[in-house]
Computed example of a mutant assay.
Amino acid sequence: MGTYGQAGADAAALHRGRLEAFVVRARRVEAHSLAADWDGLVALAGAPYAVTALGNGEAQVRQEYPAEEIVESAAARVRPLLLEGDACSYLKALAAVGYFCRELSQDTQWVKAARAEWRTRAEPNAARESGYQVMIGYTVTGRTAELDDRKLATAWIYGDVVHHDTDLLKEADPFGLSERFRAAVPLVAWIMVKAIELLNYIRVLQAADLLELPAELFDREVVLTSTCWEHTVRAYAAPVGTPAPADALAPFSDTWIPLSGNAVLRHADD
């Protein structure tokens, strides 16, 4: 194989590895309880609210979001998708799709549009035309502060949840936990939507034999559906200090005695 051919093979292997990492992570996102109601998840990504006019120029704005603990677990699942240094990052997976579809103009345009949308919504310093700004002021001291929803959301994700970024927390602290969480929920939901959409796109490409990913990648266990275990085992006992077998295939020495049928094992703290 020539130099160019080897380079092409190396690039394909690199992109295929990134897709494999993304599929596993995205399937874990897909399995989250928030994604069970797809329409609800899409609506949540749009920061839904209801406005009720109260008269005299006043109105009540109501937003109702899932419990923080639920969104926190979702944020933990999507966080690696945000980090371009992680193998499963969304942008790396998108680039991999672009690589395998580079001869297909329609798919190439989809990848470009998805990349632009991701950068606009997910990157803290990217320019954008939507969102909101929170401003606060203290009449006694004259102190004022303002942050947009994306920076507040980032402070919740990286300050309150998956890290404890003190700089982000310091900047967002005047607005309180409630404002940080309120800003983060739509972003987390939106990332989930984009991840699942890309996952489904990859499934279509895989079915069309464009990716050649391992078939078991789409079926392997990525989340636990049960956390109760019950096993039938062979149990042995030996005096304290008796060496264990060297490995899983090595036999027990004669010092290890099989437990009799009426033996009862108890936890060490009992």
Rank of each mutant, 00 (worst) to 15 (best):
G2C: 06
Y4T: 12
G5N: 11
Q6R: 15
A7Y: 08
A11T: 07
L14T: 09
G17P: 03
L19N: 01
A26K: 01
V29M: 02
A31E: 10
H32D: 15
A36E: 14
L44W: 05
L44F: 06
A47K: 06
P48W: 10
Y49L: 14
Y49G: 11
Y49V: 09
G55N: 10
G55D: 07
N56T: 09
G57M: 08
E64Y: 05
Y65R: 12
I70D: 11
V71P: 01
V71I: 14
E72F: 01
R79Y: 11
P80R: 05
P80K: 07
L82I: 03
A87K: 09
C88E: 13
Y90F: 15
L91M: 14
A93P: 03
L94F: 03
A95P: 00
A96K: 00
Y99S: 04
Y99T: 06
F100P: 00
R102S: 14
L104R: 12
S105V: 11
Q109K: 12
V111M: 06
E117V: 04
W118C: 05
R119V: 15
T120M: 12
P124V: 13
A126Y: 08
E129N: 13
I136Q: 12
G137T: 11
V140A: 15
A145S: 15
L147S: 03
D148I: 02
D149G: 14
R150Y: 05
K151R: 15
A153D: 03
Y158C: 06
G159S: 06
D165W: 00
A172Q: 04
P174A: 09
S178R: 13
E179G: 00
R180L: 08
R182H: 08
L187T: 09
A189N: 05
M192N: 04
V193T: 13
K194R: 15
A195Q: 05
N200K: 14
Y201S: 10
I202C: 01
I202W: 01
R203V: 03
Q206R: 06
A207C: 00
A208P: 00
L213H: 03
E216Q: 13
F218D: 05
E221V: 12
V223W: 01
S226N: 10
S226A: 11
T232L: 12
T232R: 12
T232A: 12
A237P: 01
V240E: 13
P245H: 07
A250T: 14
T255E: 14
P258I: 06
N262K: 10
H267C: 10
